[in-house]
Design a protein around this nucleic acid. Structure first.
Lengths: 80, 80
DNA sequence: TCACATTTGTACGTATGTATC
DNA sequence: AGATACATACGTACAAATGTG
């Protein structure tokens, strides 16, 4: 699922996968994305890499983290 | 110089120190801040911590990194 | 209040890849 | 070819916040 040979860093690939899950509605607003432990098991990536992927989504405003709870999908901005 | 006991994370403390050096003119625009190796020796902090401190300054637009060169202080926005 | 599990945040150490000089 | 320097990645550990019982 993650191509370690290609030019795109794994953290960017994972960010893209999670972004797709969010914008497609697979993970709806208010719901949490898989925890770091679950992502670790699912993708076999290190914590540092997972954190970076989540940081990308936070920067984009797609998710927000709640310490002790999880990383939640935010409500999308109202459309036109 | 870095208080490991206090509530402020070391990377934020270091970011504050570097920010002060920059805005005070001690490290002028066009000049590079100390390298990760130098910061490591000076503050005894890990690479990840140093990277995070520098990332703060980058987010603030105070510095920009040039791969293979260093982290350079940017020209401040023209004043009023 | 306390103990416990879960989850994110922070921190340290190390290795490899890539770019510049 | 070598030195320097940032970017990325992996492994590990402890702290802090939250929820449950």
């Amino acid at each position: 699922m993650i191509d370690r040979e290609g030019p795109v860093p794994p953290y960017q690939q994972l960010a893209a996968v999670l972004r797709q899950r969010i914008v497609s509605g697979q993970i709806p607003p208010g719901r949490a994305i898989p925890s770091l432990v679950e992502l670790e098991q699912e993708y076999g990536l290190a914590r540092d890499t997972l954190r970076k992927a989540v940081a990308v989504l936070k920067d984009e405003g797609l998710v927000e983290t709640v310490k002790g709870m999880g990383v939640y999908v935010r409500q999308p901005p109202a459309e036109g």
